[in-house]
Design a protein around this nucleic acid. Structure first.
Length: 509
RNA sequence: GCUCCCGUGGUGUAGUCCGGCCAAUCAUUCCGGCCUUUCGAGCCGAAGACUCGGGUUCAAAUCCCGACGGGAGCACCA
């Protein structure tokens, strides 16, 4: 075997060393896609802040449009006035901008209501939809039994009349327009789903101009088609509705897009859905939509996760239908690699312990803000008192020598509860000596908030947000609001200034 | 219960449509080493996977059937 290998080495060395492929963040090719003709859309309901699950959809939609030099549409699916609120249109736009997603066109589904009414009328005339006045329980029961109700067999003329009554407020709540589907289908989504229902609550944009609103099944299909979307994506839980989607378009003689589904994104210990996030905020378990423990774009941003990281992460997850739960460490690893070369380094001493250095030379030193890149310097003046982390102190013994990082070496003479006495023992850089970050008396008191997964074994972890108090070197005062820095030997931290106080949010190691 | 979808190392992912170049990709985590005035980065190395059972075929991660496991839907929410 050995001989064979060395022989191979001589004649065809290439065969022995497989070339490593670069990791590329790229989406697979899209079926039926033509350059310049791909149209995608991101259709959020303006009912909350965007989270990383939305980001997955938005990034994929956007990315494909760019990949094929096509068009990307932002569409607010605001056809339920009970849910939509004006603040969320703006918030969602802002979050997308932060993510670095630019859209070529924007509109609200609610702006197309007139068209939806016309199409609905067409369905009714064709006998493909009917007004149903049965109570919800009965509808459910009949659906289950696969039986039709009385309303189903009225003439299209009668249905048109009732539809007009619906539109002109002749009917109050409880009357709906249903698709005449297939009650015997094994796909329950085809059991005459609701197309339009009455909602009296004023709409955030249109006020009380309309009270008959299309459901997702109708609006989604129709909008994708008439707005020219070629490749609409949605998450897997809609899969059963595909048949309904295409059936509606077929009856309406509208173009059918290449509908595709992918799995929802889930992250270990994090609630990735509005359904799970909202109660946490309402109950005060988290501080708000930008709590650093949340996978909302605002929470991630606050914690120091970059938009580019989210993009790469989402693309690395792919568009398969496999359900999986990714650990957040995957996000951290990407973020760290982007951050590392461009992040300024500073000293922060968590849980500081005081040190006195005998014979300490007074110093005025310049410290680089990055070990290898030229990101500038800061100047520090030292005397004979310092502070170092308690964690390090606990590992020390009398007589040991260690180095105040970038400064000089000291030897421990005495360790007592609140103070450590040491002796200056020279400047030479010694191998195998601990190099510990420090601050002087001229420091800033600050807290760093550290987040752990909100949920531990599916249960809320009350210790998921920790506060670490400590001293930061004075130069930290000059860091701009929102800057992400690295506290050496501590981790990457995003800095915020809250009424003259400096606060840090721990991103990751 | 019924219907649909999914099942690749500890984790995430590529490959599955169109069987052979898969001796299965890349990453992450952990472990070992190098390097480093950070516990970060970088470099090298190690370990580790096609859910199971049948079938088709010269050849199966890939096609077919079945079992098992996981998820979703069965709304006047999206």
């Amino acid at each position: 075997m050995k001989e064979q290998i060395s022989e191979l080495e001589k004649i065809a060395p290439d065969l022995l060393h497989r070339e490593k492929k670069e990791r590329v963040f790229k989406l697979p090719p899209l079926p039926y896609a033509e350059d310049g003709k791909v149209v995608t859309r991101f259709p959020p309901e303006p009912n909350g802040y965007l989270h990383i699950g939305h980001a997955k959809a938005a990034v994929i939609d956007h990315e494909y449009a760019r990949m094929y030099n096509g068009k990307f549409i932002l569409r607010f699916d605001d056809t339920n006035p009970e849910n939509a609120a004006i603040e969320f249109y703006d918030a969602q736009r802002e979050d997308l901008q932060w993510l670095g997603i630019e859209w070529d066109e924007e509109y609200n589904t609610s702006d197309h209501l007139k068209i939806h009414y016309q199409l609905a009328e067409q369905l009714i005339r064709q006998g493909d939809a009917y007004v149903c006045r049965c109570p919800p329980e009965e509808i459910r029961k009949k659906r289950f039994q696969r039986k039709e109700c009385r309303c189903r067999n009225l003439s299209s003329g009668e249905n048109i009349d009732m539809w007009n009554d619906m539109l002109s407020s002749g009917f109050s709540k409880g009357v709906i327009l249903r698709l005449k589907g297939d009650l015997h289908s094994s796909n329950t989504a085809m059991h005459d789903p609701t197309l339009f229902r009455i909602i009296e609550k004023p709409h955030p944009i249109h006020g009380d101009r309309y009270h008959v609103w299309p459901t997702y099944d109708f609006a989604g299909a129709v909008e994708d088609s008439i707005s020219g979307v070629t490749h609409p994506f949605r998450t897997k839980e809609y899969e059963l509705r595909d048949e309904c989607y295409f059936y509606i378009l077929e009856r309406l003689h509208l173009r059918k897009p290449h509908l595709m589904e992918f799995s929802r994104l889930s992250i270990k210990g994090m609630p990735v859905s509005k359904r799970r996030i909202k109660p946490l905020i309402e109950k005060g378990i988290v501080s708000g939509y930008d709590d650093i423990r949340l996978p909302t774009l605002r929470g991630l941003k606050r914690r120091g996760i970059l938009p580019e990281t989210i993009k790469q992460f989402v693309i690395s997850q792919g568009i398969s239908k496999v359900e999986s739960t990714a650990p957040f460490s995957l996000v951290e690893a990407i973020n760290r690699k982007i951050l590392d070369p461009k992040t300024r380094r500073y000293f922060f001493v968590p849980n500081p312990v005081k040190i006195v250095v005998k014979n300490a030379p007074k110093k005025r030193i310049e410290l680089k803000l990055h070990p290898t890149k030229d990101l500038g310097k800061r100047v520090v003046e030292t005397g004979s008192t310092f502070y170092i982390p308690k964690d390090d102190v606990q590992r020390m013994k009398t007589g040991e020598t260690f180095r105040l990082k970038e400064l000089y070496n000291i030897r421990i003479e005495k360790i007592s509860d609140d103070i450590i006495t040491t002796q200056y023992v020279g400047e030479e850089l010694l191998p195998d000596t601990a190099k510990i970050q420090w601050t002087t008396d001229d420091h800033i008191c600050m807290s760093v908030f550290v987040s752990k997964p909100l949920f531990k074994n599916e249960k809320y972890d009350p210790d998921s947000l920790q506060r670490i108090d400590g001293y930061a070197e004075k130069a930290v005062a000059d860091i701009y609001e929102g800057e992400i820095i690295q506290f050496e030997r501590f981790g990457f931290v995003r800095i915020e200034k809250q009424n003259s106080k400096i606060v840090g949010f721990f991103a990751h190691k």
